[in-house]
Design a protein around this nucleic acid. Structure first.
Length: 851
RNA sequence: GCCGAAGUGGCGGAACGGCAUACGCGGCGGUCUCAAACACCGCUCCACGCAAGUGGUUGAGGGUUCGAAUCCCUCCUUCGGCACCA
């Protein structure tokens, strides 16, 4: 006994610090992950994970995002796919610029140093990235094609210039939303009050694809994401209606205020109008005696955030501008207000207010003592009953009232009739609007793709000729301690000869939103060095769309919608053949800091995995992150429990290398469970292994990594019970070990590779990588059972469990349940009202009336 | 505020109308050890009970159903997004 008791001294211990670097080096040496994109002998599988922003260090969140994707890549390879799993860096953006302003360095230097560091850190994960296809968006070889595509979109009429407001600091220029701080909205750097400034900016016409973007046909995306995108696009059918302004002392009238409404049936109930503070007619229509108050209100409104303005909770504010409009259906003069709950960017920036049938209008009318006139009445409601709330519901049988000759018509039909009638007079037309706005891509910043446009006094807006691309960012940069765009002061960049007339002209200094970079990067991965265009059609035709995209749910609308837009625009430019970029999407959750907040350097809650990797190894960290919970959930970071994963791997190590070992502390060590023959035990092991294989396969496919690992733990626990028994090491045991290693290989690639190679060595076979093995097949015969246990409930409460033949009929189950002594005792001679044999015999419920 | 998601033991979580709490952490007890650590074995939702057992429990309240953590309604809390963070 003594020589078998302490196995730990006999068998080499699991030491990831030795095992992991060895295999990482070996894999790199063999080029195991260099995908041959021209290999057509196997089906292709394009697995894409959202590329990271090079913030400096890989934190635990990057591991959380990447390692399950890597497990999936390995899982698919074992299924015979030629897997392309690329990586790159989303290298433009605000943080690099902030760092440069702070340190006086160059955003390029900071970014590239970070990328180099992150590349190194990525390799410690054991991730199987195709590094030779890497893309760095801040490299001219990438952003040149942003410019090229922009010019193409310009030609297609998808890019245009329009004046719009930005948050502006007199010292630091345009501010991002996160740079505006505090309730009184001040600049984060200098503390100055933030203003609005109107600038001419570049837009992409996303709304041109609004209807197509509403269709998710042919793609398998999570329902909540589709719902969010649908709501974001926000298609509304209705009508645009013209209200003429009435003549007054200060104004001759006759201007048309165009409004959009989804409820033309309520037109007779319009008792006032509201213009957005930014509306062009505010200035024109305001009466002289109202001027001061209106100007003050407009100023104040422009300083508010949109979220604030749209809040239905905040008390409604607004100012009458001292002008009236004429309701086209009844000729009534109704007052015009300016109020911040109407937004310039939606519809026409003006509304007809129907307080009786719109909650916000109701609140406003109540606040300002304006008339509320019911024009839609539910059955049983009088036309002039007092209203305590807006009536917005749609019910059967509601009729128009107080609506002239439309009285008595059903609301829907009445609405159509009113629009038709006004349309005949040229005062209305049916119209569809979207909440979706065109994409403002102009950024008044240095660290982004320069927009390739030149302004010439004679020729106007002139696109940079394709052959002059890329328009490069100047290599020196001078922020002069301020946060505004240094390109503005760079004469060498600014001054350029007009491509048409050759006269001195001025370059655009705005750069592109970084969402432009991320809207098509996966196409470039396929041919990062391709010189004849942004994408190599020969590659995209084979490899795209992406089979599986994984990334954070925080990108549900913006990035994922822009990418769909960009794909459709590239398709219409003849560059690619498909309609959608990502066939299947999975949104994983976000790892938060220990404080429950988003991880960021400024909060100081960034978790560094390096220490954990040094202590436990990459495999343990990978498994721990997958085991924490469902991948789509995320949550606050805590390393509590990582020891359990490490113990699990140690047990796998012991099972594989030391099947005959026994541990102190187990009185039954080395003995089969009482009453179990060796043949029984062998069958148990086989059944457990194959049942686990069946479940684990499904879990990988459904991204349920946490339960996948739990099931592998169960299998290893079962096997541990048989360790040291005569069973250990025989055929069934060996098969179970083999399956355990294969199932674990995608998730814990290093330890399984090590154990696999040692098995081969012991068996005297040549080395082959476990990651080149095929995924094993389930032997359903091994799982088959002859008897099973069925829970028996009485009135929904568990009272007994009975053992029945696996193929028992419902009648047999019924009889067996009633034969149970415990059930009989509760029945006490009464007969049950009914007996439910549920779920194909999974459970029996005996129902008694007054139990 | 609006849109989307989530609330289950001391903690992370499992259970896709059918045995609530799998798996792991932590805790308690034990084996080994001079001792500790490691490793291993057992117990561990709450209440009452020596026990067999009985009752309760999935954020709160209501509903549908033979049966609800799961479906429906109302509410509360937390997280993501709201167009210049990426």
């Amino acid at each position: 006994m003594t020589e078998t008791t302490d196995s730990r001294t006999r068998v080499e211990r699991y030491d990831p610090t030795v095992v992991e670097p060895r295999w990482q080096a070996r894999w790199a040496e063999l080029g195991m992950h260099d995908t041959d994109l021209h290999d057509t002998s196997r089906p292709k599988y394009y697995l894409l994970t959202m590329y990271p922003y090079p913030s400096g260090d890989l934190h635990i969140g990057h591991w959380y995002i990447v390692t399950p994707s890597d497990a999936l890549a390995r899982f698919r390879r074992m299924h015979g796919f030629n897997v392309f799993f690329p990586i790159g860096f989303d290298a433009f953006g605000l943080p690099a610029e902030n760092a440069a302003i702070k340190s006086g360095g160059h955003p390029f230097t900071w970014t590239m140093a970070n990328i180099e560091n992150m590349r190194r850190q990525f390799r410690t994960m054991g991730a199987t990235f195709s590094w030779q296809h890497e893309v760095v968006t801040a490299d001219p070889s990438y952003y040149r094609w942003n410019q090229w595509l922009f010019l193409r979109f310009m030609e297609m009429g998808l890019a245009y210039r329009q004046r719009s407001a930005v948050d502006w600091c007199p010292n630091d220029g345009t501010l991002a939303r996160e740079q505006v701080v505090g309730p009184d909205r001040r600049c984060w750097r200098c503390g100055e009050l933030v203003e609005k400034r109107d600038l001419d900016q570049w837009y992409l016409k996303t709304t041109a694809y609004a209807d197509e973007l509403l269709s998710f046909e042919g793609i398998d995306w999570p329902e909540p994401i589709k719902v969010q995108q649908t709501n974001w696009i926000g298609r509304s059918e209705g009508a645009e209606i013209g209200f003429e302004t009435a003549p007054s002392d200060h104004h001759p009238g006759g201007e048309t205020i165009r409004v959009f409404t989804t409820r033309p049936d309520t037109l007779f109930g319009a008792t006032f109008m509201v213009l957005a503070p930014e509306h062009q007619l505010v200035d024109v229509l305001t009466a002289p005696d109202r001027r001061a108050e209106v100007d003050a209100y407009v100023d104040q409104a422009r300083r508010r955030t949109e979220i604030d303005r749209l809040s239905t909770e905040r008390e409604k504010t607004g100012v009458a501008i001292g002008a009236d409009a004429i309701n086209p259906v009844n000729g009534e003069r109704i007052p015009v207000f300016v109020a911040d709950y109407v937004l310039a960017g939606y519809g026409t920036g003006a509304i007809m207010a129907v307080p009786a049938h719109d909650e916000r209008d109701f609140a406003f009318a109540t606040q300002f003592g304006l008339p509320i006139r019911r024009v839609v009445a539910a059955p049983g409601t009088g036309a002039d009953d007092d209203m305590t709330d807006a009536y917005v519901a749609h019910t059967e049988g509601e009729r128009l009232v107080n609506s002239g000759r439309f009285d008595g018509m059903p609301a829907d039909e009445g609405g159509r009739a009113i629009v038709e009638w006004l349309a005949g007079q040229g005062k209305a037309e049916p119209k569809v609007t979207y909440r979706l706005r065109d994409w403002l891509i102009s950024r008044q910043r240095y660290w982004g793709t320069p927009i390739p446009v030149i302004y010439c006094e004679r020729d106007g807006i002139v696109p940079v000729p394709y052959e002059d691309l890329p328009v490069r960012l100047p290599e020196t940069v001078d922020y002069r301690g301020r946060g505004d765009n240094p390109l503005q002061g760079d004469d060498a960049f600014l001054t350029v000869a007009c491509p048409i007339c050759g006269e001195p002209a001025r370059r655009e200094t705005d750069t592109m939103d970084t969402f432009v970079d991320s809207s098509w990067y996966w196409y470039r991965y396929l041919s990062p060095d391709f010189d004849d265009g942004p994408v190599d059609r020969a590659m995209t035709d084979v490899w795209t769309p992406v089979d599986q995209y994984t990334g954070g749910a925080e990108h549900a609308v913006m990035h994922l919608l822009y990418s769909r837009f960009w794909t459709k625009a590239m398709r219409d430019a003849g560059l690619i053949g498909e309609d959608e970029p990502f066939k299947r999407l999975f949104n994983q959750g976000q790892i938060l800091g220990a404080d429950g907040e988003r991880m960021s350097k400024s909060r100081g809650n960034v978790e560094d995995p390096d220490q954990l990797v040094r202590r436990y190894g990459a495999d343990t960290v990978r498994l721990f992150l997958m085991f924490m919970g469902p991948w789509d959930q995320g949550g606050p970071w805590s390393p509590t429990g990582i020891g359990g994963i490490h113990r699990f791997l140690n047990r796998v190590w012991a099972l594989a290398l030391d099947p005959h070992g026994r541990e102190h502390g187990d009185a039954d060590a080395g003995r089969l469970p009482t009453g179990e023959s060796q043949a029984d035990a062998a069958a148990t092991i086989r059944a457990a292994a194959h049942r686990t294989l069946r479940d684990v396969t499904e879990d990988y496919e459904g991204f349920r990594f946490n339960t996948m690992i739990a099931k592998l733990m169960e299998l290893s626990n079962t096997m541990y019970r048989y360790r040291g028994t005569p069973l250990a090491g025989d055929t069934e045991w060996d098969e179970a070990i083999r399956l355990l290693l294969l199932m674990l290989a995608p998730a814990a690639p290093h330890i399984t590779e090590e154990l696999w190679s040692r098995r081969a060595e012991t068996a005297g076979q040549p080395w082959t990588s476990i990651h080149g093995e095929s995924w094993p097949e389930v032997d359903t015969a091994a799982i088959a059972v002859s008897v099973r246990e069925v829970p028996v409930q009485v009135n929904g409460k568990l009272r007994d469990k009975i053992t029945v033949p696996a193929d028992a009929t419902d009648d047999q189950l019924n009889a067996a349940a009633l034969a149970s002594p415990k059930v009989a005792a509760i029945l006490a001679g009464r007969s049950p009202e009914r007996v439910v044999v549920a779920g194909g015999g999974k459970l029996i419920n005996v129902v008694i009336r007054d139990a």
